[in-house]
Amino acid sequence: MSEPVLIGEGMTGGYGTGADILHDCTIAVDAGEIAVIVGPNGAGKSTAMKAVFGMLTLRAGSVRLNGQDISGLSPQARVGRGMGFVPQTNNIFPSMSVAENLEMGAFIRRDDIRQTMEQIYTLFPILRDKRHQAAGELSGGQRQQVAVGRALMTKPSVLMLDEPTAGVSPIVMDELFDRIIEVARTGIPILMVEQNARQALAIADKGYVLVQGANRFTDTGAALLANPEVRNSFLGG
């Protein structure tokens, strides 16, 4: 088996000097894959994502990106190595225009960003139409597209999304998932935490069900949807 593009392996840890939230937790995403992390509230889903991104201290385990151990790197350094991360909230600059938000995403680049901008406008046509509008004036779904687009401006080797459909309508959720599939088809692997478990597993190549900070089930998205225990315990039957 080849090394995944991104893997947090055997992660144990929590915030500061507090109790451990993650317990020997492993999540990974392979090239061209959508991997989703689901589970009940308080399961440690977003904590696992933040651990991979370097936002809490691991007491055990490691994080590897493209085969290199990055466990000791800051989140900023991880972005420089190829991680794109979209937090659940406060993920845009509301007073800046859509175009300015995208330009801010390219802060670490020293090359011509216009081609990447064009690719993002092709991926998210509404952003081209709204490019001169303040991002804070957009709908929730459109703001999420700005946030994802800004992360893509770094030309990441992996994209991490924390609850991308939180607070949006079912129609907007379906549209965002369609866009996420399109991003994955460009070759960028996606690791995603999602509260809408059934819908997320339906588009996932691989799924992780976490319970109390530990792996409970790991399988393909289709297999998890078909698993009676997963359905009854985590998907509402």
Rank of each mutant, 00 (worst) to 15 (best):
194 E>A: 10
177 F>G: 02
150 R>S: 04
148 V>P: 00
151 A>G: 05
188 I>R: 08
160 M>A: 03
204 A>E: 02
183 V>F: 07
197 A>L: 11
209 V>Q: 11
179 R>A: 02
194 E>P: 09
207 G>V: 11
188 I>D: 04
188 I>M: 05
163 E>Y: 05
181 I>W: 01
206 K>F: 15
152 L>W: 09
196 N>T: 02
198 R>N: 12
196 N>H: 12
202 A>C: 07
166 A>Y: 00
175 E>R: 08
202 A>R: 15
157 S>C: 12
203 I>N: 03
157 S>D: 15
169 S>L: 10
213 G>F: 10
201 L>T: 08
173 M>A: 14
190 I>A: 07
157 S>I: 15
156 P>K: 12
208 Y>E: 06
205 D>A: 13
213 G>K: 10
188 I>S: 08
214 A>L: 12
170 P>L: 04
191 L>G: 06
198 R>L: 07
185 R>M: 02
198 R>P: 05
215 N>K: 03
213 G>L: 12
168 V>N: 00
161 L>F: 05
173 M>N: 03
175 E>C: 00
192 M>C: 08
160 M>C: 14
157 S>K: 15
198 R>G: 06
180 I>C: 10
186 T>D: 01
209 V>K: 04
201 L>I: 14
209 V>I: 14
176 L>G: 03
189 P>I: 03
184 A>C: 15
203 I>T: 08
158 V>P: 12
202 A>N: 13
181 I>S: 01
164 P>E: 08
205 D>Y: 07
158 V>Y: 12
180 I>Y: 02
180 I>M: 01
215 N>Y: 03
166 A>N: 04
171 I>V: 15
149 G>D: 09
169 S>K: 05
183 V>A: 00
183 V>D: 09
170 P>R: 04
202 A>D: 15
174 D>G: 11
183 V>C: 05
164 P>C: 10
210 L>V: 03
163 E>I: 06
197 A>W: 09
185 R>Q: 13
176 L>A: 10
202 A>V: 09
211 V>L: 13
179 R>N: 02
192 M>V: 11
160 M>L: 13
181 I>Y: 00
190 I>R: 02
202 A>H: 10
194 E>L: 06
194 E>N: 07
186 T>H: 12
187 G>W: 03
201 L>V: 10
191 L>K: 10
183 V>H: 10
213 G>M: 13
203 I>A: 00
204 A>V: 07
148 V>Q: 04
174 D>T: 15
176 L>R: 01
148 V>T: 13
215 N>T: 05
169 S>W: 05
173 M>S: 10
214 A>C: 07
153 M>T: 01
212 Q>T: 15
158 V>W: 12
154 T>D: 02
197 A>P: 05
163 E>D: 11
201 L>Q: 14
166 A>K: 03
181 I>M: 03
200 A>M: 11
189 P>E: 10
198 R>Y: 13
178 D>R: 08
189 P>F: 09
214 A>N: 11
189 P>C: 09
